[in-house]
């Protein structure tokens, strides 16, 4: 992932779920994720990284794959929260999420339900290759 180091880094957050407010809380001046050159955008063509979080049904999965196809290379996916990493919390039988995981390559996994804003920044820094110490 060396191409992303020290570059402007655009993130598109999709889906709806508890993790969303924690991801957007990193914009606030207490955490201030913009220090690392990270921007939140709303157009797939602008985005480098797709953040997948929250609940999806069949239609939602199709939309996400659509968004992912529209993104320009190089691109990556960050999966946030146990709804994406494991299974839909309110629909345990459905295999949609696991099918989705098989279709695309997920570059980063953030566990938690929901993860704290700090965990999200940690993941971004790990992506950017900034050392933790």
């Amino acid at each position: 992932m060396s191409f992303l180091i020290k570059s402007n880094f655009n993130i598109l957050v999709t889906g709806f779920g508890c993790c969303k407010q924690e991801i957007f809380a990193t914009q606030c001046s207490l955490y201030d994720i913009q220090r690392f050159g990270v921007n939140f955008v709303s157009v797939p063509e602008d985005a480098d990284i797709l953040v997948v979080q929250g609940f999806y049904n069949k239609k939602g999965i199709i939309r996400i794959l659509n968004i992912y196809d529209r993104m320009k290379n190089p691109k990556g996916i960050i999966a946030v929260g146990s709804c994406v990493l494991n299974e839909n919390l309110f629909n345990p039988g459905s295999e949609l999420v696991s099918q989705f995981r098989n279709r695309v390559i997920i570059n980063m996994h953030i566990p938690g339900c929901p993860p704290r804003p700090e965990a999200f920044i940690y993941a971004i820094l790990k992506f950017l290759g900034i050392s933790m110490q």
Binding site: L85, I106, N107, M108, H109, I110, P111, G112, P115, R116, E118, A119, Y122, A123, K126, M132
Partner: peptide, 12 residues
Amino acid sequence: KYQLAEFDKKNL
């Protein structure tokens, strides 16, 4: 401990 993020899912 909250510093959790892995490139590989197996490490979780």
